[in-house]
Design a protein around this nucleic acid. Structure first.
Lengths: 224, 224
DNA sequence: TAAGGGTATATCAATCGCATAAACAACGAT
DNA sequence: ATCGTTGTTTATGCGATTGATATACCCTTA
């Protein structure tokens, strides 16, 4: 495992965290430890959460919607409760997994891997767009065609990154103008036309009949 | 109803699938059913897999790396085996979840939701309208028929998106005219007729007897 | 069955939106 | 300081879209 991943462990029971903290560290994770919801709410910078439901200052499940309000990081719930309704409740609130005590360390580690793997897959998917010989890497901001790196102007770059953020989705003229130029430019459609034209000159094989950067007449533009 | 999500259920035990097939259908999923690995390998077009480990023609877990060779769809494993090593093995092979028999239907449904939520398919669900071979994706603004993308004019596009925002609901003439053309046009019903006609020419198989874009005589129009 | 309100389709000209070119100013890099 | 790049403005040709007119259609009711 290359770089360290930080987990947030929300757990008040010393019997559990005195066992988990060294075990997780030994398997290459950095761990932030919160003993109650107040501490948990102040934490940040973690890649996923391991949440015990039985906390001193309130029901641990309150933390799930709170976190979901601003974050999509995976949440793995630990609980001694056997009731199916508890599981369903937590999962519906936005948790990603629910593990009943007593659990095996190997299973916990495997389920942590699953959650991290899923988000890694999602991020890979979201960050690279490919169509024909054109490759757009939104993570690095690199655009290449037939292996050769294309140099784009700032506006061309901003336009293309925006379009590549949701390939296939139609962006209206006003959306593009507001995002790239600013809210005051939403009526200057001709700017858009010119810069779309310049983009096409760089990344289309035949700029006169675009295959990748497509016009939606009267509406806007989209990537194939 | 919006677009159905298709699940692949790999299960040979009649006692299980005779219970699961109707239950999953009742909760809005389309289900492909494979009784063994050979059938499972031939399936396609599913959004996630529910995989029973005890199959007649081999260990079910063989299917996990096979599928992972070309697909990232979520895999939820069902098994009667209680051994932690089995769980860890499957999860490390690429499964996303592991549910032990006997399990509750509500928990299974919740865990299916979690998996679909993670792959963002759930988000598409409410934004996609499907009827026969016509698919309207309101998130991307794309309209396709039998897989081929339809090109719509701005007015056609606005009309259809409005109708698709509440499929089944009747939109009155004045509502449609006010939304698409503007408040000053609420009496120009003939505009509506012309553009509804043009829409039908593009998206109905037999425009003379519409199956999707329906007339409510004297009131307005609606999607089937 | 005939009348009438409401609806569908065809055709066509005017208009609108798009792509492109050219010209120019502003800016940064060498 | 000069060159090259980038952002903006203006003008023009072209094709798609639209709205108007005219005609044909269908369902309901008397």
């Amino acid at each position: 495992m290359s770089q360290q991943v930080t987990l947030l462990l929300v757990e008040d029971d010393p019997g559990v965290y005195q066992f988990l903290l060294p075990a997780l560290s030994a398997h290459g994770y950095r761990v932030q430890h919160a003993r109650d919801l107040a501490q948990a709410r102040e934490a940040n910078g973690f890649a996923m959460v391991i949440l015990d439901l039985g906390l001193p200052d309130g029901q641990g499940e309150q933390f799930i919607p709170h976190l979901r309000g601003f974050s999509d990081v995976p949440i793995l719930v630990l609980s001694a409760r056997q009731d199916e309704l508890d599981k369903v409740h937590c999962l519906n609130l936005g948790a990603d997994d629910y593990l009943m005590k007593p659990f095996g360390l190997q299973e916990l580690l495997a389920r942590i891997q699953v959650a991290l793997r899923r988000t890694a897959i999602m991020q890979m998917r979201d960050h690279v767009y490919q169509h024909q010989s054109l490759v757009i890497n939104r993570a690095t901001g690199m655009v290449s065609k037939q292996g050769a790196i294309l140099h784009l102007s700032p506006i061309e770059h901003a336009l293309l990154m925006l379009l590549a953020s949701k390939p296939g989705t139609i962006f209206t003229h006003s959306q593009l103008l507001a995002q790239v130029w600013g809210p005051d430019y939403i009526d200057d459609t001709h700017y858009l036309r010119i810069h779309i034209g310049r983009l096409r000159a760089k990344l289309e094989d035949q700029p006169s009949s675009p295959q990748t950067l497509l016009t939606e007449l009267g509406i806007g533009y989209r990537l194939a």
